[in-house]
């Protein structure tokens, strides 16, 4: 019961989506069912994301309650969740600070605290990538040399000063990097990886539908 029912549900819901693909979404009942089920999946998926946030809240609340080392940071996380989420959930008709429109608390916190921190986090990666490259990029063998050379060429090609430098060797060098490296070799490898990953995803989907893959259910 605890395993068989979910497996049957997974099979049926997947099977419907596959069969519905072959029918017109506007003219057939099966097509209409597909559109409706897609809305259902979005709703249940939304709840799963909320489940994640509730889980974060529980973990942090536990740390605050037991006064675990560094609990003040957990308290700050909790406070930030509530300060961001609660005004966003209240209707904007009550106050201009509620909801998610321009001028609301939610909008202000996102624009002036969350977004700048997100940008800075990613910007900081520039230092770590540079440091990792300094340690890892050694022309030890032919393959490593290829990696190093391509990375340097692309980095130069991406900036105006670097492009001007490349033009000192040949006027067509930047164009060649664009044609043969980015739209040639790079595209081919990305495509190969994409096809491989897509075939893997398709076979995994089949395993889930047939009940061979059940790890998503957890233990018990």
């Amino acid at each position: 019961m605890r395993t068989v029912v979910p497996v049957i549900i997974a099979f049926l819901s997947g099977f419907i989506m596959i069969v519905a693909f072959f029918f017109n979404p506007d003219k057939t009942i099966l097509g209409k069912i597909e559109s409706e089920v897609l809305v259902w999946v979005t709703i249940v998926g939304g709840f799963t994301l909320l489940l994640g946030v509730v889980s974060i809240t529980r973990v942090n609340w536990q740390a605050v309650k037991t006064k675990k080392k560094g609990w003040i940071y957990n308290f700050l996380t909790l406070l930030s969740i509530f300060v961001m989420a609660i005004p966003a959930m209240l209707p904007s008709s009550w106050s201009p600070f509620f909801g998610d429109s321009s001028g609301s608390v939610y909008d202000w916190l996102f624009n002036y605290i969350d977004a700048p921190m997100m940008g800075t986090m990613f910007a900081m990666l520039a230092f770590y990538i540079a440091s990792a490259a300094f340690r890892a990029f050694r022309a030890r063998n032919a393959e490593a040399t290829l990696l190093l050379l391509t990375a340097v060429l692309v980095m130069l090609w991406r900036i105006p000063m670097g492009e001007a430098f490349l033009r000192l060797f040949s006027d067509s060098l930047p164009q060649m990097i664009n044609n043969y490296v980015m739209n040639g070799v790079n595209l081919a490898v990305q495509r190969g990886i994409l096809i491989g990953a897509a075939l893997g995803a398709a076979s995994m989907s089949l395993r889930i539908m047939l009940g061979i893959e059940r790890t998503y259910m957890g233990k018990g």
Partner: peptide, 18 residues
Amino acid sequence: SRISLAFVMGNTAGIFLI
């Protein structure tokens, strides 16, 4: 909770396969 999860997983698998 497996029932909801199976519903999402099954649907996603069906959509993904195609």
